[in-house]
Design a protein around this nucleic acid. Structure first.
Lengths: 138, 138
DNA sequence: GTGCTAATCTGCAACTCGTGCGAACAAACA
DNA sequence: TGTTTGTTCGCACGAGTTGCAGATTAGCAC
């Protein structure tokens, strides 16, 4: 995701307004690698801006997502989790604590599948499940 | 997933009862490659057994899943979809009609990732998104 | 076949996550 | 400073799923 400053410019250049609520969310998401849920962001945002509405959090996340500035990850029908990292990458999920880690995977182009030739793939995603370092240690 | 007969034996041997509702669901799932939702199974089941409860469908699907006889696939936070194919395989999803296809992928062992060495992976799943043959033709 | 008992079924309420709506509000700009 | 248009907020609603409790029934012993 771009920096809060760049997002501010982009929003304005597209005729969207830059409100304090949006600025707060821009900053909470910037460099955030925790793949937070909307609720988690709402909770953090509420500490800095009591009174902010969960509805606004959802709205802004949805705006960012449809602008392509924010990624969305869904794991096992849990709540949607948001990913400011929109570069090409995949995920590793700890089945114990639920943490999600960004990973890069090389060699995907060499995978051989029996996928029907009539199917036109446009993207693929890989999710590893397992246990993270802290949970293995515990 | 095992055959309805085998499932019947397994249920009984574990002290679980084999009811007409369960038998119906066993047969609806057997050799089913449509990755149906609970609602879809309920709808089909209702035709053959009017009065069957959606709650019972959920219950039985959940039982089969926790017994390892049935797989569960979640795509983009849509409703859970069930997969009687519990062999090692992956999925291709048509973004237009929503159909899910089972696929096999070779070469996954050769993938190189920068996954943290403290993370102990236990499984991985691959999902291709794209357009299926019928939707491309249309 | 009859009776017993624990498992199951069913319907409803409740719950989680997310969205639609409309009135009140505020950013952007002249 | 005023106007316009997008935004925020709260509430109600909707989909998908689960908890609960009373009625029902499979499985088994006799």
């Amino acid at each position: 995701m771009r920096s809060p400053q760049e997002l501010t410019e982009r929003f304005r250049s597209e005729g969207l307004k830059v409100t304090p609520q949006r600025q707060l969310l821009f900053s909470l998401l910037h460099n955030n690698t925790e793949h937070p849920t909307a609720e988690a962001l709402y909770s953090t945002a509420s500490e800095q801006m009591p009174g902010i509405s969960l509805r606004t959090v959802y709205q802004t996340l949805s705006d960012l997502t449809s602008m392509g500035e924010l990624g969305q990850v869904s794991i096992d029908n849990g709540p949607a989790r948001f990913d400011p990292n929109i570069t090409d990458h995949h995920h590793a999920v700890c089945d114990i604590c639920g943490a999600i880690f960004d990973i890069h995977v090389d060699g995907t182009a060499k995978l051989a599948t029996d996928i029907d030739s009539g199917f036109t793939p446009s993207s693929m995603s890989i999710v590893y499940h397992g246990s993270c370092a802290s949970c293995v240690a515990a």
